[in-house]
Design a protein around this nucleic acid. Structure first.
Lengths: 200, 200
DNA sequence: ATCAATAGCGAACGTGCGTACGCTATTCTT
DNA sequence: AAGAATAGCGTACGCACGTTCGCTATTGAT
């Protein structure tokens, strides 16, 4: 039927697979993502899907990477031009709230779900998830530290405490949206993050 | 081999199954929990395990119930004798931090993990998870409202905002413990919860 | 003493999983 | 123009899953 596509087409196919994979995994989990279902929904053969990755865990890792890159491109990179420190941090927080309140994926933030799914399962998939998560956290921490250096926060400001509370608000927002579609949660998350920065 | 136990023994068997089920599910997820593995680890037959529940989803729901009841008995009920309002709320918060920092189960809080696992999958399992979760949240909210009535919190205190931030700290604590065994996270969670109550 | 009820076992089932292999027809290199 | 490389398909494999069925031997009620 469809014997061989060009190398360029193959890249498109791969992207198509990962796009659908991210959608499925965001709702059903990375473990609920199966090659058979993927093949069916994309109207191609199981072996055709399989060949692009060679292994289930490579598919899972690639899906995590894709979701993270999409998030980064759309919600982090646009902020990188802002003035580093407290200002850029506020932009990043606001972007992440928008991302969690109106996710790119039907099942919400794939990274958040995968972190919970794999926190107790050592392996390469877990490493990929934790790695992506750390990149995001390190970005926030970097701006927090710049804010301290620039004296934009009060004396004795606790960077790790603020980081904890910002991430906490993100977790809670994600849960509120996914579990009960709580429209008021975005506002609460914003307020919680702002309070984390105005540490008393 | 083991033909028929007494009704009393059967209850013990059921409890033994659910105990191990909660351990497995806390680490591998409610979906990663399988009857075959359960049977193997308990050294009984698959059909023997199966018969106690009749259906996989009943097993999952029973496991959620068991984990919730254990948490409730050990960390909520002992606090119910405390003076209602802000004081009891503080005890509950402290208890929940201890629970999340040193969980009963090897993979951390089963309820938190299950909430994330099932937030995008409608069905009876999800209903059970959300139901348990709501009971906990309602308990916290009840004391927050009592605190407001008793004037223990400042004028204009936002109950839902405080609730959001308390739960947020719990999520973040759970993640910090499970993902990177961050020993400092408990202190940060306590501080975050306290700040949620001292709403400015 | 009798006898229905049942805890747990053993074997089997259909299904869906990840994976392996060979094939075909096109693309890309030379 | 010729030939190596390969995208994707079709088929098949072994395995683990949840579930079903019949059996056995004890329990607990009559």
């Amino acid at each position: 039927m469809s014997p061989r596509r060009s190398a360029a087409e193959a890249l498109l196919t791969r992207a198509r697979i990962l796009g659908r994979a991210a959608e499925i995994a965001s709702a059903e989990g990375l473990e609920g993502l199966t090659i058979g279902r993927l093949a069916e929904e994309l109207e191609m053969s199981k072996s055709g899907v399989h060949k692009h990755f060679g292994t289930k865990s490579v598919l899972q890792i690639s899906t995590v990477d894709k979701a993270f890159v999409d998030f980064w491109r759309q919600f982090v990179e646009p902020a990188l031009g802002e003035r580093p420190g407290l200002h850029r941090l506020r932009v990043l927080c606001d972007n992440s709230v928008r991302y969690l309140a109106e996710p790119l994926l039907p099942g919400g933030c794939l990274l958040t779900a995968a972190l919970s799914e794999y926190d107790g399962r050592p392996g390469e998939v877990r490493d990929a998830v934790v790695g992506a998560w750390s990149r995001w956290r390190d970005q926030l921490r970097a701006d927090l530290e710049i804010a301290v250096e620039q004296g934009e926060v009060p004396e004795g400001f606790d960077v790790e405490q603020a980081l904890f509370e910002i991430l906490a608000a993100g977790f809670a927002l994600n849960a509120a949206m996914q579990v009960e579609h709580d429209e008021a949660a975005a506002g609460r998350a914003r307020r919680a993050m702002e309070r984390a920065l105005n540490q008393s």
